[in-house]
């Protein structure tokens, strides 16, 4: 029971922030009702969302998440957008589309989901399916350089996985 309350802390904080932002005000009424609602929401979803409370409350992991967010939004996204934009503008349209296997070396749901969403959200690559036993994503790639796992991992998800491992694994 105590463990459940500890687990509820992280979803509760996220819930409270969402409540305040959605309500758009931070008067005493919003804070009091927000705390009540967030505690309820946190306790209801604690077991579903949090496996390890120490991991969820670790500030080093949060710091890595922020660093990854900055890397992803500033560097990875710009690079991918620029690359796809070049292919669109080029009159020869140099694309070589295909679906390739991209291996991953993480175990937890959050890590698998984050890498998959990172791949999908960058232009040029979309995760269409995954196989958790074989530990591969099936990714539609706009410019297949080579279909072997080493090349695809190197080009598509190596950097994502490096950061995600520090955040979720």
């Amino acid at each position: 029971m105590v463990r459940r309350f500890v687990k509820a802390v992280t979803p509760g904080i996220v819930a409270f922030l969402t409540y305040v932002v959605f309500s758009g005000s931070i008067r005493p009424y919003d804070v009091v009702t927000g705390i009540i609602v967030s505690v309820v929401a946190g306790i209801i979803t604690a077991e579903l969302l949090v496996m390890s409370p120490t991991k969820a409350l670790n500030p080093v992991r949060l710091l890595w998440l922020i660093i990854y967010g900055l890397y992803y939004l500033i560097i990875a996204e710009s690079r991918a957008h620029f690359d796809v934009a070049k292919r669109i503008i080029n009159p020869k349209m140099p694309i070589k589309p295909g679906i390739v296997r991209v291996p991953f070396n993480v175990k937890t749901d959050y890590a698998i989901t984050s890498i998959a969403n990172s791949i999908t959200n960058t232009p040029g690559t979309v995760v269409v399916d995954l196989n958790t036993e074989k530990q591969v994503y099936y990714v539609h790639w706009i410019d297949v350089k080579a279909p072997d796992p080493k090349t695809t991992f190197e080009h598509i998800s190596k950097m994502f996985e490096r950061f995600i491992k520090k955040v979720f694994e």
Binding site: V14, A15, G34, A41, I44, L49, I112, T113
Partner: peptide, 16 residues
């Protein structure tokens, strides 16, 4: 698993 993970994160947000 990807869809499930994203969905379960949305549940507390839906509640609040």
């Amino acid at each position: 698993r990807i869809v499930k993970t994203v969905t379960k994160i949305l549940i507390p947000l839906n509640i609040v």
